[in-house]
Design a protein around this nucleic acid. Structure first.
Lengths: 177, 177
DNA sequence: TTCTGATCGTCAAAGGTTTGACTATCTCGC
DNA sequence: GCGAGATAGTCAAACCTTTGACGATCAGAA
């Protein structure tokens, strides 16, 4: 074998090449787990890149900013810490993002009477319009991706992803706990 | 219905709640595509967070730094632009990360004789040791996640992810093209 | 009541990533 | 040859995110 096709690899064919090479270097490597990790990570990266570049940036929203608007839209007015938990980011990140969102008139911050440490975040009318418009386009992109699978394939895929999400490994990875 | 359980949601139950709410607000929403997008994104985030916090940060590597070492390990010495393409990041990101990796003695940069614009990146002995050690632990975590699924479930999941990865939607999202 | 420990939001610091600009270099058609 | 356009790597700017620290506030036990 020629042993030097490495230069011509693209991101796709790299997965196959990498698995073979890793197995040779580290015989204990689990190739199936490796393929699962690589493929899942690569696909998610492509999804976020697609969403952000085609939907959110053109509307003046960062990916993080959209996520905050999204949880406020669907889970009603929320205290900052709850928004952070639902959006999967740190409290500090929410604090920073809301500064911009408030300046742009998309979100309001009001004190919570029962707890003077807490701040209640809510969408403004403008914010509501912005997030519904953005999510409509976002969901259109999600449909474009999902349409590559048959309905039953979609069901199976969701089931397997949710099984991983609720697995012991996921529980051990207490994200931003 | 009480209509106000939103405060008590966690990142998991939020998906169900969000889909119901979105369908009510935007009837055109495709709930299956929405669930697929949310679940996939959430799972990938948990995976990366797990890898980075348990494997790479403790070894003094950033997630980006590991990805560069990883492609250099498996695809041999590479010119910078090839490393960027395989690692799924911009040339500028590779340039910045290599600055640190070179300082730490993990990577060398040498001029390419045939093209004086290009730089060839290669692992040092120390870098090789570092990446094999890190990937061994990384793959152990991948196995922990994958072990929640049966072998046939793993095969099905990989097949569906690869089908999405090679779909027309993926081709349209020319990541960092 | 008061004190101790926990929690809330924010800030500063550090680091990572992208885009766009820039210089140096290469390639290809004339 | 040579000149126009493409390409490689780097830099600066902007932005996002995390961690750790902080002051303010709350909750519960003594």
């Amino acid at each position: 074998m020629t042993d030097r096709p490495a230069e011509d690899l693209d991101y796709l064919s790299f997965v196959d090449y990498a698995i073979g090479k890793a197995k040779a270097e580290l015989p204990d490597t689990d190739p199936v787990a490796m393929r699962l990790g690589l493929t899942l990570h690569r696909l998610a990266g492509a999804l976020v890149y697609d969403w952000e570049s085609t939907v959110h940036r053109p509307r003046g929203l960062s990916w993080g900013g959209f996520r905050v608007l999204f949880v406020l839209w669907l889970a009603g007015p929320l205290e900052s810490r709850h928004a952070a938990r639902l959006a999967g980011m740190s409290r500090a990140a929410v604090s920073a993002l809301v500064k911009t969102l408030e300046r742009d008139g998309l979100v309001t911050r009001t004190q919570v009477p029962e707890d003077r440490r807490a701040v209640r975040l809510a969408l403004t009318e403008t914010g509501h319009t912005a997030v519904t418009d953005a999510y409509q386009a976002h969901n259109t992109r999600e449909q474009a991706w999902a349409s590559s699978l048959t309905p039953s394939e979609q069901t199976v895929l969701i089931g397997l992803l949710e099984k991983l999400t609720t697995s012991p490994a996921a529980a051990a990875a207490q994200r931003l706990a």
